[in-house]
Design a protein around this nucleic acid. Structure first.
Length: 867
RNA sequence: GCGGAUAUGGUGGAAUUGGUAGACACGCUGGUUUUAGGUACCAGUGAGGCAACUCAUGGGGGGUUCGAGUCCCUCUAUCCGCACCA
């Protein structure tokens, strides 16, 4: 029997081979032609909306996309098999800075560059065999899309959710342009090398802070979001309950004398420890101080040039300017606090001014020590630590040196102080959010134009809806420094539709995060004349499963949530029911002697050395890092698909590493994936004769061997189902390996074996389809079935095969494993003792000592405790 | 600095949630084949032993328990985020 199987295998392998190139193309065109993945709203069917974060069309897909879209596709195909009405759309996050950069470098228009990339990447995605509904495809740079976005903008504008204010940008004085943070390297412009200034510009903002509380509290409703992401958003919103205190300014200057200073603090309990006050360099009061005291101008511009964020605040040296102005302590008569301008105060947080209590805040303490300011300890910490003058005490404790709040706890003291300040009408409790309004102005060309114009009489006018969309001009000159729309000779000049007065268009464009804040909604009705169709979105929304990179944990997801909440006429409050954030794709890096990075396909191994092929020089392994062009540790998915096929690439992406963790790409890994595809294909071909339907009658009595196979297949089916449901694709893959290994060893001896084999193989084909769809389709056609495996329902686990009569009970002595026995299910403790009598090492141990205790967990374990 | 997470063989990782640690894969070692080679197949892969068996082990230390990778305390290390890249 064995011999005949072997010869059959050999003959088979000689004649034909697994050829992904042919079968993948074949099934891709089948799916396309039959429009298998196009979805329609159907109120009689339960829907499932699965979405992966749409890509930026940068040129080619990369391994990160392969991983992201494979994961989503497994879910999409699995849910389809479960009988749900699945929508799985794809589009393009097509506006953005790289298109402008590429345009400058290659002398091609951003639009042409973008659409060429889209076309390339679309064909690459198709080669991956993704079950995408391309009939809903959209690109955010498409006029049809940004037309609707401009309408949404006006809608929000009318709802007073959009306003203009002065705000700081990174300004490159040589290029005359605003830079993104990533374009500022060590304080210098990435192209010009010029020192970057912080410049104030009037810019548009979304009032996302109106929704701060809502965005925070409804996080609790998002049960299927990773805790990590929710924590990040919570911290980002940064709700804190504190106190706003108004201080009188003491100055000889008439104007300043009458001004007041607002300070926000979360620690009003430390007010008796306050010894100074610090203003943000951008605080409005600073401008007034500068007028009176122009001498500080130099120092001030230095402070203003510094990049301030929370990280730099806690790390950098604290620097301040003494203004020689004082404020009056509200609770201590005649106490004056010096006012400094300091580099560690954020204008955007609280009121841009603080009072410093050095003993209980590290930043304040560092500052006080540097400028020899008073330090007063006002809290006696629970932890008993004594104040050393270098480390601030931030622990909870009891108030000291604090007049009428002495002896109170921090918690109680806060309340008493707030009440007292309120009574004196100089302070009140205030809730403050770290979340700032969303700045949406970009001084760039390749983005959605803002439908606003400025009339010559100073009025800000909406562009009427019937004049939308405001289209981007195609004849732009990107070589001139500055904002291309502003530079355009004619584009910005227009007339007020009501009065006929001259007007100038807004030349800023929208942040691309606006584009992605509602695209999931547009997919529900991509051709609607409104931003979204009420009925369609009511059926499809919310997105049941959203899959993407954790790098979008805060901004994109928060903005999308904000948009969803701010929209009108919708039946949902949150956009994404369930969120999954996948890990990155990493690869070994290689460096030569001079430290230059080397491409992995430019190396070979020779005599245990790694040699660069092109130069014949020795290279060395660097760290394992996420694939990036700069480190040259990239593998092109297209090359992989060409040599191993999409199914092998998909398999690799799902195997080994859990989806939420980083995966390390390796040559041996992809080869292993190819091997298993080959193995499954061979397995099906070799057993072709058993796969016709008349073999698959399950009513027959099965032999023990066949029952074992049925146990194996049902256990695997169960594990794969659970694995996919729980996003543990790596576990599902491991179980399929087990199943395939078991199947390869199985030989048909009797008629009944054929039945089990047929059933097991059909289960195998069905459950691999979400992972390796082309292979599954091909195998399915080999069975002689007509049509597509996709229309086959997901099999039900047959519980009766999962229940075994025999179980293994482990025998422990003092908690250490000493033996295991095979017994019938649910036997009693006595029966187990009876059985282990004959096991020498156990009976020896028992006879030598006394049994103190015996713990028996039926069907699992017997632990005998000896003295 | 603040906030969050993680730690299991040579490697990626698994473990029905307190009950046989190391499933599965990669790598490595030996072998088989009318195998040119990549391939396929078989066996081994914590240590000791021919073997029955014994011992060790989950970043370090401590605790709870009949029993701990899993629960508690503590120390250490690493990774991620901290507002104009998408």
């Amino acid at each position: 029997m064995l011999q005949s199987f072997r010869s059959k295998l050999k003959i088979y392998l000689m004649s034909d081979k697994y050829n992904p190139k042919v079968i993948e193309k074949k099934w891709q065109s089948f799916w396309d032609n039959e429009k298998i993945f196009e979805s329609k709203a159907d109120p009689n069917r339960e829907k499932y909306y699965i979405l992966e974060m749409f890509p930026y069309p940068s040129g080619k897909i990369h391994m990160g996309h392969v991983r992201n879209y494979t994961l989503g596709d497994v879910i999409a195909r699995y849910k389809r098999a479960q009988g749900l009405n699945v929508m799985h759309p794809m589009g393009w996050d097509a506006f953005g800075l790289p298109a402008e950069n590429a345009a400058k470098e290659n002398n091609i228009s951003p639009k042409d560059w973008t659409y060429e990339n889209i076309s390339t990447m679309k064909s690459q995605l198709k080669q991956m065999g993704l079950s995408l509904d391309w009939s809903r495809e959209l690109a955010t740079c498409d006029e049809k899309y940004y037309h609707q976005q401009q309408k949404l903008f006006l809608n929000f504008f009318r709802k007073k959710l959009i306003y203009k204010k002065e705000s700081l940008v990174n300004w490159d004085p040589v290029e005359n342009t605003v830079l993104a943070n990533e374009q500022v390297i060590d304080g210098k412009g990435w192209r010009s090398g010029a020192d970057i200034e912080q410049k104030k510009l009037s810019q548009w903002f979304f009032k996302i802070t109106d929704y701060a509380e809502n965005l925070l509290t409804s996080l609790d409703k998002l049960e299927k979001w990773p805790e990590k992401v929710k924590t990040m958003q919570k911290n980002w919103i940064g709700k804190s309950i504190g106190c706003e205190i108004t201080f009188n300014i003491l100055s000889n200057d008439a104007k300043l004398k009458t001004s007041k200073l607002q300070i926000f603090t979360t620690r009003p309990d430390t007010i008796f420890g306050a010894t100074f006050c610090a203003l943000s360099p951008f605080h409005p009061l600073v401008d007034e101080i500068l007028e009176i005291n122009p001498k500080i101008g130099n120092e001030l511009s230095q402070l203003r040039a510094q990049k301030i964020n929370e990280e730099s605040i806690s790390k950098n040296e604290k620097i301040g300017i003494n203004t020689n102005i004082f404020i009056e302590h509200p609770l201590i008569k005649d106490k004056k606090l010096p006012v400094y301008i300091a580099n560690f105060i954020l204008m955007d947080y609280g009121s841009g001014a603080i009072y410093g209590c050095p003993a209980h805040d590290q930043r304040d303490l560092d500052f006080a020590n540097k400028y020899n300011l008073d330090i007063i300890q006002v809290i006696d910490p629970k932890s008993q630590e004594t104040f050393d003058g270098v480390n601030a005490i931030t622990d909870d404790g009891v108030l000291i040196n604090s007049d009428f709040i002495n002896g109170l706890t921090v918690f109680d003291a806060k309340k008493v102080i707030i009440d007292k300040l309120a009574e004196l009408k100089v302070g009140e409790q205030k809730i403050n959010y770290r979340l700032r309004d969303w700045g949406i102005s970009r001084q760039r060309y390749w983005g959605c134009p803002i439908p606003i114009m400025y009339r010559e009489d100073g009025e800000v006018i909406e562009v009427p809806e019937d004049q939308l969309p405001i289209k981007l001009p195609s004849d732009i000159d990107l070589s001139i420094p500055g904002n291309p729309l502003d530079n355009h000779p004619t584009w910005k000049y227009t007339k007020c539709p009501k009065t006929g007065m001259n007007a100038i268009r807004e030349t800023d464009t929208l942040d691309t995060f606006v584009d992605s804040a509602w695209y999931f909604l547009r997919f529900c009705s991509p051709d609607s004349n409104d931003a979204f169709n009420e009925d369609e979105s009511k059926y499809w929304m919310p997105v049941d499963q959203y899959v993407g990179g954790v790098e979008h944990a805060i901004l994109h997801l928060l903005y999308a949530r904000f948009f969803t909440k701010a929209l009108e006429k919708k039946s949902f409050d949150e956009p994404f029911e369930s969120l999954f954030t996948q890990g990155m794709v990493c690869h070994q890096t290689y460096q030569n002697k001079s430290g230059n990075w080397v491409y992995p396909d430019d190396i070979k191994e020779e005599n245990r050395k790694i040699i660069q092929i092109s130069t014949d020089e020795e290279v060395f392994e660097g760290p394992m890092e996420s694939m990036s062009k700069s480190k040259k540790n990239v593998i092109d998915p297209e090359t992989i698909i060409k040599s191993f096929g999409a199914d092998a690439a998909r398999w690799f992406m799902l195997s080994d590493s859990p989806p939420e963790k980083d995966i390390n790409w390796s040559e041996s890994g992809i080869q292993g994936s190819w091997k298993i595809c080959q193995k499954i294909w061979t397995l099906i071909n070799v057993n072709k004769e058993y796969l016709s339907s008349n073999h698959c009658n399950e009513d027959l009595d099965l032999s023990d061997q066949a029952k074992e196979l049925m146990y194996l297949s049902n256990r695997c089916l169960n594990a794969v189902t659970n694995g996919i449901e729980k996003f543990q694709m790596n576990v599902a893959i491991a179980k399929i390996f087990e199943f395939v290994n078991g199947l390869s060893k199985f030989r048909v001896h009797k008629k009944n074996d054929e039945v089990a084999l047929c059933s097991a193989l059909k289960i195998l084909i069905r459950i691999i389809e979400p992972m390796v769809p082309h292979l599954a389709e091909e195998c399915w056609s080999i069975t002689g079935a007509s049509g597509s495996i996709i229309s086959e329902p997901w099999p039900e686990v047959n519980q009766s095969y999962l229940e075994k009569n025999d179980v293994i009970v482990v025998i422990q002595i003092n908690g250490k494993r000493r033996a295991e026995i095979n017994v019938e299910k649910d036997v009693t403790e006595e029966d187990v003792y009876e059985k282990i009598k004959n096991i020498k090492n156990i009976s020896d141990a028992i006879s030598k000592r006394n049994i103190v205790k015996s713990i028996y967990v039926p069907n699992k374990i017997l632990n005998i405790v000896l003295n």
